Computed example of a mutant assay.
Amino acid sequence: MIKLFKHNLILKCISLFLALGLWLYVMNEQNPSITSSITIDLSVINAPGDYQILHNNDKINLKVKAPRSLFASINSSDFKAYVDLKNAKEGTEALPVHIQIPKGFELLSSTPLKVSFTLNKIIEKSIPVDLILSGQPANGMVVAKVKQSADTIVVKGPRPEINNIRRAVGYIGLDNNKEDFKVIVPLRAINSNNKEVSDVTLLTPTVNADISLARGLTRKVVTIKPIAGSDLPDRYVLDALKAYPDKVEITGDPKVISTVNFLDTESISLKDISSSQKKAVKIAIPEGITVSNDTVTVDIKISPKKTDKN
């Protein structure tokens, strides 16, 4: 057997290499390597449960290479693209995209290499509740008193949204009412520009209101006078305060009404003011007086204090 194996050994080796080369040639012709582009969904792992997670890209584009036969046995779900949020912190950060591909494939490129993620902590905050009357009661009737079941509620949501919320408002329609009535009032979260903030949750979405009506009370329109606090930083000057609306209708006992020509707002803190801005401010309402809306928007204008130069 050994003599038979050694017989014409060189020719046998040459034949073996030729056969192997021919096989590789045929296989390459019949099953060549090809390049293809695949678009897959980006997934997230280790996402913290008490954060709002935002990112600027949902799709990842891959360019891969493999023998033609492998492409016939897979689909796009066999390719994975993910971002790991295990060590992510609150704020915005560009995080690397990790790629997993099936065996036998070569990854030529992936786009994008990083995706910008923003994490906002979910927090809670207590905000005041304002009930606003709309419409008119029946002729000869006025609103004597509005009693609400809660003066504040708790709102929950992403930190930037919650920090911008100033109050919750609800609207009560009078609709020519002749008698006292009760109503459940839905509430909406409002920001400093009196716009609704929708991406938050009101843990108490309604309040109960008791509306008392009365006859023989006097109506009167008076001016709103904004009152500034004394805590404006020394480097600024208060240029102007303007309330919107600057007048409000009040009702009450004639003896009380006759003594009221204007209503002050509650003192407006200027401690954290660094630029001109608008604030929602409560009206200071004397005993025996009722207003249809107890909150106004005050336009606060300040400027840097001028210093003398020698």
Rank of each mutant, 00 (worst) to 15 (best):
I190Y: 04
S276Q: 05
P48G: 07
K65V: 01
D41M: 05
V97M: 07
V281G: 08
T39S: 14
I190H: 05
K282G: 03
V183F: 05
P160F: 04
T295Y: 06
Y236A: 09
S258Y: 00
V222I: 10
V143W: 04
S33A: 15
K65I: 00
P254H: 06
A144Y: 07
G104M: 08
F79W: 02
K279R: 15
F5M: 15
A47H: 05
V298P: 02
L16F: 12
I132W: 03
R188M: 05
F105C: 12
S33T: 12
D84H: 06
N61H: 10
A243L: 06
Y82P: 04
I153D: 05
D41S: 14
V200L: 10
V185T: 13
Q277C: 03
P128S: 07
G21W: 04
L202H: 08
A88Q: 02
V222P: 11
T290Q: 15
S275T: 05
I227M: 10
S76M: 04
T204V: 07
E179L: 04
P137Y: 04
K305N: 10
A189L: 02
K220T: 03
K156W: 00
L4F: 10
K220A: 08
I190P: 01
R159C: 01
I127N: 09
A209C: 08
N28V: 00
L174K: 11
T259N: 09
T218M: 08
I224V: 15
P102T: 09
V197M: 06
K247M: 10
I172N: 09
V298Y: 00
M1G: 14
F71S: 11
K195H: 12
K59A: 13
C13M: 08
L24R: 10
I250S: 03
